[in-house]
Simulated assay, not measured.
Amino acid sequence: MQSLRNERRAWPIGATIFALAVAASFAGYAFDVVSKARGATDSMMIVPAAGIGIAALIAAVIEDWRAPARRHDAYEAAAGKAQDIRALSFMAALAVYVAAIPFAGFDIASFVFLATALLIQGERRPIVVLGFSLACAVVVVWTFVSALDVPLPTILL
């Protein structure tokens, strides 16, 4: 007979060390960029992205250590497989996005990638998918092309 009490999970030592190593890599890269930057625009995109990455990794480590003990049952295993498929789908979409930018333009590729990412994550309302993708793509393209004067291939914007 299976015990009804929840069993404590093993401490995620390996995952914690890996996450902290990646966070340290982000910090090292950001400091390297800042030390070699010729101006504020060189580090304007790297430092905030590194900060967000470090904060996300630290939050994930804290959440993993504070997660309540749970039983591992068939439902959790199925949910884990679905999450794995979504993660692999997102990585594939990201690879296609990067490869498509020179051909479809940064604006079109960004719009399609954002819409695909929302669909992969489970959003099904067309107005949300199209509206959010369009708004984000316009803001990101305008920021890079007009505000930061980064030469990117664009089709519409």
Rank of each mutant, 00 (worst) to 15 (best):
14 G>D: 10
64 D>G: 14
45 M>Y: 04
131 G>H: 04
70 R>E: 15
62 I>F: 10
70 R>K: 14
41 T>P: 11
124 R>P: 06
12 P>K: 06
126 P>I: 07
139 V>G: 00
117 A>H: 03
99 A>Y: 11
64 D>E: 13
110 S>C: 12
68 P>I: 10
90 F>L: 15
92 A>F: 10
57 L>C: 05
49 A>M: 15
110 S>F: 04
98 V>R: 07
52 I>F: 14
27 A>G: 07
78 A>P: 01
106 F>S: 08
70 R>N: 12
94 L>W: 10
124 R>K: 13
74 A>T: 06
127 I>W: 12
60 A>T: 07
153 P>M: 02
35 S>I: 00
72 H>Q: 15
32 D>L: 11
94 L>T: 13
145 V>I: 05
96 V>F: 10
128 V>L: 13
29 Y>M: 10
140 V>H: 04
11 W>I: 14
141 V>R: 01
120 I>T: 06
46 I>M: 14
6 N>Q: 13
105 G>T: 05
108 I>V: 15
46 I>S: 13
155 I>T: 12
139 V>Q: 01
18 F>P: 10
7 E>M: 08
32 D>C: 00
18 F>L: 15
89 S>P: 02
146 S>L: 14
18 F>G: 06
146 S>M: 14
65 W>E: 00
121 Q>H: 08
26 F>Y: 12
133 S>T: 00
67 A>D: 08
38 R>V: 13
109 A>C: 08
112 V>E: 05
122 G>S: 04
140 V>G: 03
25 S>R: 08
55 A>H: 04
14 G>H: 09
106 F>N: 09
31 F>E: 10
91 M>P: 01
96 V>C: 06
47 V>C: 04
135 A>M: 10
87 A>P: 01
87 A>W: 11
6 N>T: 09
120 I>K: 00
154 T>L: 02
86 R>T: 04
19 A>C: 11
111 F>E: 05
63 E>R: 15
43 S>D: 05
24 A>W: 05
81 K>P: 11
94 L>Y: 11
58 I>W: 10
105 G>F: 09
112 V>D: 07
106 F>I: 03
121 Q>I: 01
96 V>K: 03
20 L>Q: 05
82 A>P: 02
116 T>L: 12
62 I>E: 00
95 A>V: 12
117 A>V: 10
153 P>C: 06
150 V>A: 09
128 V>N: 01
7 E>N: 08
40 A>K: 13
